[in-house]
């Protein structure tokens, strides 16, 4: 069963002159096990959208269902794990163990069950067991973010929702978080992330939702996205599209350095062959 949004609209300061349309007529469907990227400029409604997924916000019109249930029901809350941008906004315990256990205990799991979940979550984010007794505030930014991730994973969610998980984190920290997310996804959890880091996330995304001024301007597979006009692209893809528009017959739906290399060399050999054929004349 998926996350489904039907004709969802949401306004801030509704019925006042200050009314702001945050989301307008949004329809979307996210299946279990998908890796989804939500893209768009600041203020396009990305953060608002994901807050609908676990009932932090409710739509003013339209319907949100998660596995057929309302997102504000308690059952759903533990199925949708949320990780927000600033891990420091949510960490408060004296040890990492307590921090990760906070969620499961809130949902009423037994001590034993909770411990099991903490250890499992810790392993999922590639943190060592010896860290359990450490203070979360002694960690680096990347490690803090992974603890926040573990907090969400300890609830064994079907959907993991993240808001800019790698913004402000250095490249090695980014890599570790991306690897964690890939593993989580491979284990069958849907990963839904708001991001503007295309370079880092693009290889992982299966589905892309692009928001513009509160509306969905694109929704589809990565391949379709690469063929769409007026959307932000990672540098290699942008370059390949530019090549195509300049009349070089490359496949523009390419975004990794390896693929681009192959594509350019393939086209080069074709062009050289053509030249060679022309020359004898």
């Amino acid at each position: 069963m998926p996350i489904i949004l039907e004709n969802v609209s949401l306004f801030y300061s509704k019925n006042t002159p200050l009314e702001i349309t945050a989301l307008k007529d949004v329809n979307l469907r996210i299946e279990k096990g998908e890796f989804v990227g939500i893209l768009g400029e600041k203020g396009a409604g990305k953060s608002t959208l994901i807050k609908l997924f676990n009932g932090i916000l409710r739509p003013d019109s339209g319907k949100v269902t998660i596995d057929g249930l309302s997102p504000s029901s308690k059952k759903v809350k533990s199925r949708v794990g949320m990780v927000f941008q600033q891990a420091a906004d949510q960490l408060f315990c004296r040890t990492i163990y307590d921090e990760i256990a906070f969620g499961p205990l809130n949902f009423g799991y037994s001590r034993k069950e909770t411990e099991e979940r903490v250890l499992e979550a810790l392993e999922a984010v590639y943190l060592d067991r010896t860290m359990l007794s450490r203070n979360p505030f002694s960690l680096s930014g990347g490690e803090m973010q992974r603890v926040a991730l573990a907090c969400a994973l300890a609830l064994r969610p079907d959907y993991l929702v993240l808001d800019e998980p790698i913004t402000g984190i250095d490249p090695s920290g980014k890599k570790e978080i991306l690897e964690t997310l890939k593993k989580v996804k491979d284990q069958g959890t849907a990963v839904i992330t708001v991001t503007h880091n295309l370079k880092g996330f693009f290889p992982l995304l299966e589905k892309i939702i692009h928001l513009q001024e509160g509306r969905i301007s694109f929704q589809g597979s990565r391949k379709e996205y690469l063929e769409t006009e007026n959307v932000p692209l990672p540098p290699v893809a942008a370059m390949m599209r530019e090549l195509k528009s300049r009349g070089i017959q490359v496949n523009p739906a390419v975004f990794t350095v390896e693929e681009a290399l192959e594509e350019i060399l393939r086209v080069k050999s074709i062009i050289e062959k053509e030249k060679a054929e022309k020359q004898p004349e």
Binding site: M239, M240, E242, L243, R246, G247
Partner: peptide, 26 residues
């Protein structure tokens, strides 16, 4: 390594990069 020489200055943006490849190939 494959004999396509893109000078350093041209790697600053996708468009300058593409322009250079066009120049070389065409």
């Amino acid at each position: 390594k494959h004999g396509v020489m893109i000078p350093w200055e041209k790697t600053s943006s996708p468009s300058s990069f593409a322009e250079e490849i066009c120049r070389l190939f065409l």
